[in-house]
Design a protein around this nucleic acid. Structure first.
Lengths: 233, 233
DNA sequence: ACCTGAACACCGTTCAAGT
DNA sequence: ACCTGAACACCGTTCAAGT
């Protein structure tokens, strides 16, 4: 079936899984996770809540599908003709940016272990780990470390974003608030946090994220290596 | 009315924040995150839902407080007279085990960025990073990498646990199911995941978790170091 | 000060009934 | 096959009223 492009005119298009997911993403982007309800969604699609259940199994299925739409786009946009490490960095940063643009993706990923969106990421990561020449017995640990780190940052970013949104703060106001709280902690009990308070105000989440990726890549570098790594080509 | 459900009878004690948190933890441990409702909680405490609001602000506050009770116990039980790396490993494993025993802690941590429980972890981690001699400009990135990795694993563990519980599977049945799914993926599209399917069945989450910590520690090792490291003892 | 519990404004999900 | 929308069984939270 040949389908028309665009189609913001929801007048006569009939309901479909794709249209529901598309509308869900709009809702999630506009109002966050709490904004996605069957009532809001059915209103936006000019139908009843029950109609949605003809096309999707339940809310969890819907959220995962919306998440997968973003993740698939992100993974498929990757340029794969670079060194394994470069691809890993790009993959990580692309995901970081995608979660930054769609904070709900961070928690949706956490909520859907083993589902398609996660597998897309695992697979892409794993292939690069392999290409790095990591022995097969340690490939999973290496891929898993990167995955968990990325998901950890994603989840935290999502939570921070939601918190900031709730309080009506932009990123720099939010960092100022965090810095302020940290600087007022008890210096006996929280010497480290206090000493970091100043840095918090000006720090770059994205750069810190990449620094963490580098740490893990550095650790992978120091693993015993199989012969056929990249450098030898 | 015969008797209360098993040995949880606290007959005449009056309501208090501590008792509410204690009962919340029992509920969360028994029935997971969805088990914690104000109705179930007030029934268990033989009171009305409204009474709880005299002692706690809202559900988010309650979940964070329950989470903090576990995290505080875990952090305070750490033996601090070991090398920084050893302390970091112990801290990470203790948290892993705590989240394994109380899966809801994993997602509660993610949901409460910058709250007390998270700060306890950041602080303990940061102090060890400092003790490792990491230059102050990179301490945050290092602490943050460990924290995000730990939270990432925690969140995933929580999600896996909930999934397994929902389907009534124990850990080994769950791993079998994952392995089965992975082994049936399209070999063209998912070569890495397929090749890992066998390992999945027998793998040890805890060991993999620790391997990830080692990778990050290895990366930290290869950072340029200040003079006063541990090795000199 | 602390507790009660009905009431409010929501949820996700179901299902008989329509086309 | 697909959609409607009222109804069901829940939620978190509030608040007048009690002690």
């Amino acid at each position: 079936m040949a389908r028309k492009t665009s189609g913001v005119s929801r007048r006569e298009e009939s309901l479909s899984r794709e249209r529901i997911i598309e509308a869900s993403i709009e809702l999630l982007d506009k109002s966050g996770e709490s904004g996605l309800t069957f009532r809001a969604l059915s209103e936006r699609l000019a139908t009843g809540p029950g109609a949605l259940y003809w096309h999707i199994a339940n809310k969890s299925d819907l959220l995962t599908a919306a998440c997968d739409a973003i993740v698939a786009l992100t993974m498929n946009a990757l340029l794969l003709d670079a060194s394994p490490k470069a691809i890993i960095r790009t993959l990580a940063l692309s995901l970081f940016d995608a979660i930054d643009a769609h904070p709900w993706v961070g928690s949706a990923l956490t909520l859907a272990p083993g589902q398609v969106p996660m597998m897309r990421i695992v697979e892409r990561l794993g292939q690069q780990i392999r290409a790095l020449g990591v022995p097969s017995g340690e490939q999973w640990a290496a891929a898993s470390a990167l995955l968990n780190y990325i998901l950890g940052v994603g989840g935290r970013n999502a939570a921070n974003g939601q918190l900031a949104r709730m309080r009506g703060l932009d990123r720099s106001e939010f960092l100022d608030a965090v810095s302020e709280i940290w600087s007022q902690l008890d210096p006996e009990e929280y010497p480290f946090a206090r000493s970091m308070a100043g840095q918090m105000r000006a720090h770059d989440d994205r750069a810190d994220f990449l620094a963490g990726i580098e740490l893990i890549l550095g650790g992978i570098d120091s693993l015993p290596r199989r012969g056929e790594g990249v450098s030898g080509v």
